[in-house]
């Protein structure tokens, strides 16, 4: 009796351990495919670093007050040195601090834009692909064609321009511009998947439309969507930097990378650090997210 209970307990325990084991197995397999290319590791390091800097900005930044309306004319226009690592701007604010705080806006921007544009775009693409060659398909796809008929940056700029320039509205502008790409992507796959036998079988056994759309078709479209999402983060950062470069993004005194570059350009070549370091920060950040996205793509492609 005692023995039997003990045996059951051991089996239960080993089952639990098996779960953990399988989980770790999956993680390590994915990590193997991800880290196959050493550049992906560089990418994920940059991404983690940028996220940590952004989250811990008030603790890490040497002069947190400089990320706001702060004036210190004694230390104005200091070149990079021991006290101010990347120099100061003409009203004495630390460039390093402002770059770290600007990471926050860029990250929030990419999270919000993708968190809205991806579900909305994918849902529309899913519906259009399911009702392939019906009036619903035509309406949705022609509308998305209209949004794709001007250069993306022009669309984003004009939406941002007619609204009040701030971070919120530049997010709206980018979201308006971003969703049709996902509609196109999911539409292409959903329209071919919806002719597969398993979808027809589900339909014949009386599954609801909801079940067919979200349980049968959608899971088969997700992998490319995630890949595109990972690669799009860099693009959102480029576009948001472009908007704030012309003054249609985050407004001063809150720092944004594009805005810092355009401010710095006014003081070229004397205060070159004002312009060069935020520009380098943009490049490193985008490079990191692009390499990370490439790694995710390789991982999803080889584990399929």
């Amino acid at each position: 009796m005692d023995n039997k209970e003990f045996r059951i307990a051991t089996i239960e325990k080993s089952r639990e351990e098996g779960k953990w084991h399988r989980f770790w197995d999956m993680i390590s397999r994915h990590w193997y495919h991800f880290s196959y290319n050493k550049l992906s590791i560089l990418g994920i390091s940059i991404v983690v670093l940028v996220i940590l800097l952004a989250i811990l900005a008030p603790c890490i930044a040497p002069y947190p007050a400089h990320a706001g309306p702060f004036v210190d004319f004694i230390n104005a226009g200091q070149p990079p040195g021991v006290k101010y690592w990347l120099g100061t701007d003409p009203i004495g604010r630390d460039i390093f601090t402002r770059i770290i705080f600007a990471f926050r806006g860029a990250l929030v921007m990419s999270i919000v834009v993708l968190a809205i544009a991806v579900p909305v775009g994918s849902l529309l693409g899913l519906i259009a692909g399911f009702y392939y060659k019906t009036i619903i398909d035509t309406i949705i796809m022609r509308i998305s064609d209209v949004f794709l008929s001007i250069p993306p940056l022009v669309l984003a700029l004009s939406v941002a321009a007619v609204l009040k320039p701030n971070l919120m509205n530049s997010m709206i502008a980018l979201t308006v511009m971003w969703w049709p790409w996902y509609t196109r992507l999911v539409y292409g796959m959903a329209s071919s998947v919806s002719n597969e036998y398993f979808v027809i079988a589900a339909d014949l056994t009386g599954a609801s439309k909801f079940h067919i759309l979200f349980r049968e078709i959608l899971p088969n479209c997700l992998s490319p969507v995630f890949t595109k999402m990972a690669l799009d983060v860099g693009w959102v950062i480029i576009f948001s930097a472009s908007l704030s470069f012309v003054g249609l993004g985050e407004q001063p005194p809150t720092p944004a990378l594009g805005q810092m570059v355009s401010d710095g350009a006014k003081y070229l070549p004397e205060l070159w650090w004002m312009c060069i370091f935020p520009a380098l920060a943009i490049i490193v950040m985008i490079l990191g997210f692009n390499l990370f996205g490439d790694g995710i793509r390789d991982m999803l492609q080889s584990s399929r």
């Binding site: 860099g234 930097a241 570059v261 070229l268 070549p269 070159w272 520009a279 943009i282 490049i283 985008i286």
Partner: peptide, 14 residues
């Protein structure tokens, strides 16, 4: 692909 065109343009100007 990681350098926005406007950043490249600024570098050129500098």
């Amino acid at each position: 692909v990681s350098i926005p065109a406007f950043v490249l343009a600024i570098f050129f100007v500098l």
